[in-house]
Simulated assay, not measured.
Amino acid sequence: MSEAVIMLAAMTVLTREVDDGSAADAFLADAQQYRRELLAHCYRMTGSLHDAEDLVQETYLRAWKSYNNFQGKSSVRTWLYRIATNTCLTALDSRQRRPLPTGLGAPSSDPTDDIVARGEVPWLEPLPDDSTDPSNIVGSRESVRLAFVAALQHLSPRQRAVLVLREVLQWKAAEVADAIGSSTAAVNSLLQRARAQLDEVGPSQDDGLQLPDSAEAQDLLTRYIDAFESYNIEQLVELFTADAVWEMPPFDGWYQGPQDIVLLSKTHCPAQGPGDMRFLRTTANGQTAAAVYLLNRETGVFEPLQLHVLAIGSDGINHVVAFHMTSFEKWGLPDTLPVAT
């Protein structure tokens, strides 16, 4: 049963406890339109799609239970964001930050060394784009890009909340203060410290990214896919920028430069030759992406391996995060592919 169905079922039960059924129906109709943007908000706060889905469900349940106390002093949207933010802050009290390998503080790795999986680390997760509503993709693309969400992980939960509410949602300082139970002066101080912390993390690799549907990005993605599917790994050298970065959680290493990235692929890629991998185009975090399937020689089908999320600039690919995946259900893609006949 999907998370959305569970949430609606719970609300249906709660509906029987509410006297004014028309108000309940109006709330459901009004609130559901904000579900996708609330998911993006909770994702920015947590860095986890799974956590974000749970927190959105908790947000709606909290809102439903307290709906009779909603006085209409703000819009339903603002009210839901207040609840979602505080729900995230409560959850983050007991959770670790979610890094990428580059965020662990270690230098770049030797591509010929063994790769080490760190299953105990709560890694940053990718976010599917909302293909049902292109306006949502455009509106939230920059604020859910991997580099930005990874940078947010360096902030305390309250710094994260303030920065997102002020600079992504464009709330006034007084509105943020009211939402998180603080003072305007404290909010301004938190924002100042958050900006300083982000400056220390370093410049964003998202600057000047090509849009996923641009001709440039799609052409480069075609060449990238061809190189892997034909097992012509050497072709990748010409696709990456000089300072390109490759990382692949849950493995804790990261690699910089075209030569090291190619050597890593040749040393550790599980494919044995041409035809062992299949790629399907998609998008994630508002960026160009590809779902990667590996041939299982015992079953004779292609099974999920990784989701490659690419940062493509004007001069080539400058960053790839290859997330280990066991399912592409959230991207609306099949979990297996047959071998072409």
Rank of each mutant, 00 (worst) to 15 (best):
G316R: 04
N296K: 07
V201W: 04
L211E: 14
E229K: 09
G257S: 09
E303R: 13
G253I: 10
L310Q: 01
G316H: 00
A242K: 11
M248F: 00
E200N: 07
W254S: 04
Q197N: 12
A311H: 09
R278M: 11
F323K: 06
A217K: 02
Q259Y: 12
K266M: 15
D276H: 12
R297F: 03
T299G: 07
E234S: 10
A289Q: 08
F279K: 00
T241N: 06
E200R: 10
A242H: 07
A215R: 08
D315S: 15
A291I: 09
A227H: 10
I317M: 02
L221F: 03
T288R: 02
A289W: 04
Q210R: 14
F323G: 03
M248Q: 15
H308K: 05
H319T: 02
F323P: 05
G286K: 03
S204I: 12
Q256N: 09
Q210M: 13
L264N: 02
E303G: 01
L198W: 03
V201Y: 06
D260P: 06
A322K: 09
G316C: 02
Y231I: 00
A215W: 11
R281T: 13
E234G: 10
M248C: 14
I225A: 06
L305E: 11
I261M: 03
E234D: 12
T282R: 02
Q235V: 04
L295C: 11
A311K: 04
D315I: 07
E303K: 13
K266E: 09
M248G: 14
W246T: 09
L307G: 07
P250I: 12
E200P: 02
L221G: 05
P274Q: 06
Q306H: 15
D276T: 13
E303D: 05
L263D: 14
I317V: 15
P258F: 04
W254M: 01
G273R: 05
A244D: 04
